[in-house]
């Protein structure tokens, strides 16, 4: 038991060091530029402590439970033994032999996004600001579906070896078209959701998957092709959130005409 306390303490210390720059910027501006005490300073202090403690426990737990398992899984799923189904390989693998990888990519993308703390924060804020018109849980599910599709497609790209920018630029064009047609209220939030999804939980697992894939497939360099999955995971949620807004918009529209 004391061992785990030591681990918690050292992770907490590392988290505090990471947060120090933000904290000092806030304090300097609050004290020297705004020149007013922070309102409810005691509550804010406690809250900040909870945030740090929460983040430290969260990171330690991920390191202990999820990351080793998830990374091992990504390695095993991308190994040649598994991909060939235990049989001796007669020819080279084609893209359709990687079915479980696409499924794993989608599943891990979806589930890690649901647990992503910064997305929870943005979704809560969006629900509050929109007066409940945007439901925090639905928004998170929409983003998670986007990440799932993105990472799955990104894995397919690594398998077939297409240049990344064709996919990303096509994605941009879709985003532009959707922006024209979707409700204006959602646009900024949709753009934001691309950036918040790829954070603490998603990045390490997705990076492990990309690295594993790129090192198994002949002709791919893990150092060059391993990159790029994050870009897919940041682009597709934008489309998913706009699609979600378009669908719910259509629904409310239908309800109104029925009445």
């Amino acid at each position: 038991m004391p061992e785990i306390l030591i681990e918690i303490f050292s992770t907490l210390k590392a988290t505090v060091v990471d947060v120090l720059p933000i904290l000092s910027i806030i304090l300097v501006f609050q004290l020297f530029v705004i020149r007013k005490p922070i309102p409810n300073v005691k509550k804010v202090g406690f809250g900040f402590f909870y945030v740090l403690l929460g983040l430290a426990l969260f990171l330690l737990g991920l390191e202990k439970a999820l990351f080793p398992l998830g990374k091992m899984m990504a390695e095993q799923l991308t190994s040649v033994d598994f991909l060939s189904g235990g049989e001796i390989l007669t020819g080279s693998l084609v893209w359709s032999d990687y079915g479980w990888i696409y499924a794993f990519a989608a599943a891990i993308g979806f589930s890690t996004t649901i647990a992503e703390p910064s997305l929870i924060a943005v979704a809560l804020k969006a629900e509050e600001v929109s007066g409940g018109a945007i439901n925090a849980t639905s928004l998170r599910i929409a983003v998670a579906i986007g990440v799932a599709i993105g990472i799955s497609l990104g894995s397919y790209r690594i398998v077939v070896g297409d240049p990344i920018h064709y996919y990303i630029i096509t994605g941009y064009i879709v985003v532009v078209i959707q922006t024209i047609f979707c409700p204006k209220l959602i646009v900024p939030l949709a753009y934001d959701s691309g950036g918040v999804t790829t954070s603490t939980v998603t990045v390490p697992l997705v990076a492990a998957l990309g690295l594993g894939l790129a090192s198994t497939i002949p002709g791919r360099s893990p150092l060059i092709d391993g990159f790029g999955l994050i870009a897919f995971a940041s682009l597709f949620p934008i489309m998913a959130v706009m699609a979600y807004a378009q669908l719910t918009h259509i629904n409310t529209h239908d309800n109104q005409t029925e009445e």
Partner: peptide
Amino acid sequence: GLTFFIYGLEMS
């Protein structure tokens, strides 16, 4: 950790 984080978020 997630519980503490979200709890502290709204406070700080």
